[in-house]
Every structure is written in C-alpha cells, then in structure tokens.
C-alpha cells in the first residue's frame, strides 16, 4: 500500500478499453488516485475494486460519453478534483467497408476519434492553463500519418486528432501544461481481436501504459511504443503518391 503523500489524480477517458485500464493500473501503481471515465460507468465497479485493492489508492468511476461534447464542461466540473494528468484512450475503429457504405457509421468513427477526444482535451486544457500545470495525453494512431484504402476514415480522424494535439502542445508550451501524442502502432486489444497482427510489431496494452508513464515523466512530445514503427512510418510517408496510390498496404 502506498505510504507516500497523495500525488493527485489521473483521469482516464475511455477507461474500459484495454489501453485505458492498463494506463489506470500503471499510474495507480505510482500512487496517483484514479478517475475512470466511460459510458455505463457502473460496469467498471469490478475494475475500481481491483485497482483500489492492488494499489491502496482511491478510484472513482464517472459517466462520460465522448460524443456528448456539450456536456464536457459539466463533466470536468463534476470531477472530485481536477486531475494532474488526463489520458484520452477513447476511440473506435469501425469496419472500412461499413464506413464506405454507411455515412452514419463514418460520421461516428470520425467524431469518436477526432471531435470528441479533441473537445474534451480542449476543455481540460483550459482548466489546466488556469491552474498553470498538468499533462494531457492523447492516444492517436500511426494510421493518421498517411491515409490508406484499408482504413482511411479512422486514419483521417486520427490525423485530425494528431494535428490538434500538436497545435495544443504548441499553444500550451509556455503555460506550464504539457501535451503528449501517442502513436502506438498495433496493440493487442479488443479493437484488434481477430486480426492477424505480426507479433514483433504488436505491443501489449501494459507496454503502451509504460511508454505513456515514461513520456509523462520525461515530458516527451510524440512517442511511438515499439521503436520499429517510427521507421516503418518514415518509409510509408515518403513513398511518392504516384506509387503509393497503386499499392495495397
């Protein structure tokens, strides 16, 4: 059980996701109180009990719908305390075929990967600026670095989110608030269940959480989780468009 003085709270948005839960465990182990935010948050009771029992810290669950952007300000105001670190692990990855045929599905994917996470971090940013401290972590995706036929709806929303984080970091750099952009590459989660992912390029959720904790403490700006991804994406981004458009990747 932690005997250190309370370190403040870490807010995890999208706390039911595998990465969100791993992040919660990682920061709880360091002695932070944890605020888990997700839809239907009463179903997180078992996770709250688990984290509280393991690390001897306070854990609270908060109802949060990332698409209900009008309620974001009220959501932050209702938290038991303003967190010192907020991590957005929100996101969906719809099927590309569905997104091509069903525009409502495409809109949901775009909103839940870009609009929703961007707005909640924007609200939190203003509170952090008023306090003069804090760290915002946005989990984006390498898919946002170049649109590909197989998932460009998801990818373009992530591209928007990545650009938003970059701008936010630029704006807040002189105001004591740090912004971390995470581009995890493949992760072994519910989102990727059933996909045949190469083991060497696929991180476990706990690895992503470790990378985030290090990035927060060292004030890193943009992180990849497994190092190979930095170079893979460097190559993919530099393929001339004339060739790229005919490729199947």
């Amino acid at each position: 059980m932690s005997t250190e003085a309370p370190k403040g709270s870490v807010l995890v948005l999208g706390a039911r996701s595998d990465i969100g839960l791993a992040v919660a465990h990682r920061f709880a182990r360091q002695g932070y109180a944890i605020q888990l935010a997700a839809r239907n948050c009463s179903s997180l009771a078992a996770d709250c009990a688990d984290i509280a029992l393991r690390y001897g810290i306070a854990v609270t669950a908060h109802e949060f719908d990332v698409l209900a952007t009008a309620g974001h300000e009220a959501f932050v105001a209702a938290l038991p305390e303003l967190p010192i670190i907020a991590v957005s692990a929100v996101g969906t990855m719809g099927k590309q075929d569905d997104n091509e045929r069903d525009m409502a599905a495409a809109i949901t994917d775009i909103r839940s990967n870009f609009e929703g996470p961007a707005i909640i971090l924007a609200v939190l940013a203003n509170h952090f600026v008023a306090r003069g401290s804090g760290t915002l972590v946005g989990i984006s995706s390498v898919a946002g670095l170049r649109g590909r036929a197989t998932n460009y709806v998801y990818g373009s929303a992530k591209a928007g989110f990545t650009a938003f984080l970059s701008g936010l970091r630029n704006r807040l750099a002189k105001q004591g608030v740090h912004v971390v952009t995470v581009l995890p590459g493949f992760v072994d989660t519910r989102m990727t269940a059933g996909m045949d992912l190469p083991a060497k390029l696929t991180a476990q959720p706990a690895e992503v959480a470790d990378a985030i904790a290090v990035a927060v403490s060292k004030q890193r700006n943009v992180i990849y989780v497994r190092w190979m991804w930095r170079y893979i994406m460097l190559i993919i981004r530099h393929i001339p468009e004339g060739i790229f458009k005919k490729m199947k990747i």
Partner: peptide
C-alpha cells in the same frame, strides 16, 4: 489473461 481482477482480501 484479461479476466484478472482481484476482488476482495
């Protein structure tokens, strides 16, 4: 492996 919560002590 993901069903790994501790429930009570």
């Amino acid at each position: 492996r993901r069903m790994n919560r501790m429930i009570a002590f």
